Computed example of a mutant assay.
Amino acid sequence: MAAPVAGPEIERLVQLLARLPGLGPRSARRAALHLIKKREELLGPLSEAMRVAHERIVTCSTCGNIDTSDPCTICRDVRRDRSLLVVVETVSDLWALERAGLLRARYHVLGGVLSPLDGVGPDDLNIAGLVERLRGGEVRETIIAVNATVDGQTTAHYIADLIAPLSVKTTRLAHGVPVGGELDYLDEGTLAAALERRTVF
């Protein structure tokens, strides 16, 4: 067994960094060394930002977004179209749509997708909260913006069936050939979706 090359504090830092998505043990060691090397510029400010985040960040009780206030900034924004609600899987999906800047809608974060194999059912997601919001009568259209995976599509169909009696227009993101995509590089599922949803030219 190899002897430890650093003290327990540094090893703990490496172990915690290695738990982050996209960082394996080697990347975590490199990141830890970089933080330590730039301790005044990076490590100190990062640890302070993480402390503040830990203390102040909450989950919005209305939509499921994360912010430092509840309701969140988006839910409090009076310039948003209150008749349009975009349903997403995760907060990162919400952020992606916001970066695109194409809609001034409100959101609803499910917190994942239905996945029987992983033991994730309707009660494990924020679906009841979605139905409650739609029953309020303010929303005229719900855009189901989940990922084009098997579990994502299962979730989309489940939600569409569940909210059908509420007389809210339900749409979903189009699937198919991405802008700039080449047919030769697309998988069969993407090509099938593109052909099925073809439009008049």
Rank of each mutant, 00 (worst) to 15 (best):
L102M: 10
S47K: 08
I10L: 13
S83I: 04
S83W: 08
L42H: 14
P122C: 11
V78G: 13
L110P: 03
G136D: 06
L43W: 00
L173S: 06
S69K: 08
V5P: 10
P25R: 11
V109T: 00
F201Q: 14
F201C: 07
L166I: 04
E141Q: 14
A100S: 13
L195Q: 09
V87Q: 01
A193R: 15
T190V: 05
T90G: 07
V88R: 01
E11A: 13
L16G: 00
H175T: 10
E138A: 12
R51H: 12
T155C: 09
N65C: 09
A193T: 13
A156L: 12
P122Q: 07
S69D: 11
L43P: 11
D77R: 04
P165Y: 03
A145H: 07
D118H: 12
W95G: 00
V91C: 05
L20N: 03
G137E: 09
V58Y: 05
Q15F: 11
D118C: 02
L173H: 06
R133S: 08
L195C: 04
C72H: 03
L84V: 08
R197P: 04
C75P: 10
E188C: 06
H175R: 15
D81W: 00
T170A: 08
R19F: 00
G180M: 01
P116E: 02
H108C: 04
A192F: 08
I74T: 14
V179Y: 03
D67V: 00
H54R: 14
A3K: 15
Q153D: 14
G137N: 13
A193V: 09
T149S: 12
